[in-house]
C-alpha cells in the first residue's frame, strides 16, 4: 500500500485521482493545488508517490519536481498531462519524474503506470513472469 500525494490545480481532478487511489487500495496522504504547496507537503509528509499535474498556475509541475528532488530522491513522481508533447515529457523525466500518464486518467492507466514504476524489470514482457 502506497502513501500518495495528489497534486492538481483542478479540484475535480484531485477528487478523481483520490478516488482511484483509494480504489486501488492505496492511501491518500494529502493533496495540493499548486507547485509550491506540493513542495511543502512533500517535505512534511514524505509520501511514497506523487501524482503531479504539469500545467498549474503559480509554480508548474516541472519546477516543483526539481525543487522536490533537491531534498528527496526517493519519492516516485508521476506527471500527468493532456498532451504528449515529447519535450514536456522529456523535461519532466529529466527533472526527476519516473513516469507519466496522459489525461484523461483512468484507474487502469494509473494502475499500470504505478506498476511500471515499481517493477524491477522494466520491459514489455512483464506479462511473461511465471512463478
Amino acid at each position: 500500500m502506497l502513501n500518495i500525494l495528489v497534486v492538481d490545480d483542478s479540484v475535480l481532478m484531485r477528487n478523481n485521482i483520490k478516488s482511484y487511489v483509494k480504489e486501488l487500495g492505496h492511501n491518500v496522504l494529502g493533496e495540493a493545488q499548486n507547485g509550491s504547496i506540493a513542495v511543502k507537503m512533500c517535505k512534511e509528509l514524505s509520501p511514497d508517490l506523487i501524482t503531479m499535474d504539469i500545467t498549474m498556475p503559480d509554480m508548474d509541475g516541472i519546477t516543483a519536481i526539481k525543487q522536490i528532488r533537491e531534498f528527496n530522491n526517493d519519492v516516485n513522481i508521476i506527471v500527468s498531462t493532456s498532451h504528449g508533447q515529447e519535450e514536456i515529457i522529456m523535461r519532466s523525466l529529466q527533472a526527476g519524474a519516473k513516469g507519466y500518464i496522459l489525461k484523461p486518467m483512468s484507474k487502469d492507466t494509473l494502475l499500470s503506470t504505478i506498476q511500471n514504476i515499481y517493477q524491477t524489470s522494466n520491459n514489455d514482457s512483464e506479462y511473461l513472469l511465471d512463478d
Binding site: L12, T81, H83, E86
Partner: peptide, 24 residues
C-alpha cells in the same frame, strides 16, 4: 468552483489529446 474546474479540465484534455506533434 467545480464547474470552473471541469470546464478547464475538459478543454485541457480535448486540446491536449487532439494536438500532438512529432517534431518536439
Amino acid at each position: 468552483e467545480f464547474r470552473e474546474s471541469i470546464s478547464k479540465e475538459v478543454i485541457n484534455i480535448i486540446i491536449g489529446n487532439a494536438l500532438f506533434n512529432p517534431y518536439d
